[in-house]
């Protein structure tokens, strides 16, 4: 019973604070650095869980309408350029790789390598967003923005549309053609939400590059880089699914 909790009164003494030398980055309420790293890492995973459920609602909507309006979804998906989509998938996969290497560099305390890897990740993220902008712009020009600027021309008369003609799409009945708008809404909602995550990620990457150049993260405290890595890989995973679901519904002519 000697080690039972003591009933405590009065002010904490200075002695209460001075035991053990803590590194500067250890917050006062943690006992050890490992505890702090574990806790923040776990918190990041839980945050990613909330992200899974957030996207879950969109995936749910996608699956329902894809089942209901399959022909509309096929024709509408032909309007996306599979080459851009593939390029973007490669960009994100490579950025995930450079991010993983960045974490490795931080753990091995290689400052130069870390800055290089983060910069490459930053760059690949920008490439992704650049390509996405081109794609969005094309949708704007072809009047495929649901709710704001929408025309069913490409689906009622596919011969008039280059992309549709290339896949030999047959004209959809008006009733089905109208439902392409739901496909495009889901396309914009899902890729838009994904792009928003990319933008946030890139902003944090920029901040991290500046900090890494000043020598942060390579002194043994790698939690921030690790946790950001988890976020970045998660964004990559979302895209892997979006690519399969939005671009690759059915491409055979």
């Amino acid at each position: 019973m000697s080690d039972s909790p003591a009933i405590v009164h009065g002010a904490p003494t200075e002695a209460g604070h001075s035991h053990g030398e803590h590194p500067a980055y250890q917050r006062h309420h943690f006992e050890t650095v490992e505890q702090q790293a574990d806790a923040t890492n776990f918190a990041m995973w839980l945050f990613l869980l909330t992200e899974v459920m957030f996207f879950g609602g969109l995936f749910c909507a996608y699956l329902i309408y894809r089942n209901w309006y399959y022909p509309a979804f096929v024709s509408a998906s032909h309007q996306l350029d599979v080459r851009w989509g593939t390029a973007n998938t490669f960009a994100l996969i490579f950025s995930s790789f450079t991010m993983a290497m960045g974490v490795w560099c931080a753990e091995m305390k290689k400052k130069g390598g870390l800055v290089l890897c983060l910069s490459l990740t930053f760059l690949l993220g920008m490439v992704f967003l650049g390509i996405k902008t081109i794609e969005y712009h094309e949708k704007w020009e072809k009047h495929h923005i649901p709710g704001i600027r929408y025309s069913m021309q490409s689906f009622l008369n596919p011969a008039s549309d280059e992309a549709a003609a290339a896949y030999g799409d047959k004209p959809l009945p008006l009733d089905m053609a109208r439902h392409t708008e739901i496909y495009f809404f889901l396309y914009f909602a899902m890729t838009g939400m994904h792009a928003l995550h990319m933008i946030i990620g890139i902003a944090i990457l920029g901040y991290m590059i500046i900090r890494a150049r000043a020598g942060a993260y390579t002194t043994g405290h790698v939690t921030f880089v690790e946790n950001f890595g988890l976020y970045w890989h998660f964004v990559d995973i979302i895209w892997i699914y979006l690519f399969a679901l939005l671009y690759l519904i059915s491409r055979h002519p």
């Binding site: 998938t89 490669f90 996969i93 995930s96 790789f97 993983a100 290497m101 490795w104 690759l248 055979h252």
Partner: peptide, 19 residues
């Protein structure tokens, strides 16, 4: 990481081909 990167690239090529 390099092996995984290559596997992911192969997977991407494969899924585009399969579609």
């Amino acid at each position: 990481y390099v092996v995984i990167l290559l596997a992911l690239c192969v997977g991407t090529a494969l899924t585009v081909w399969a579609s």
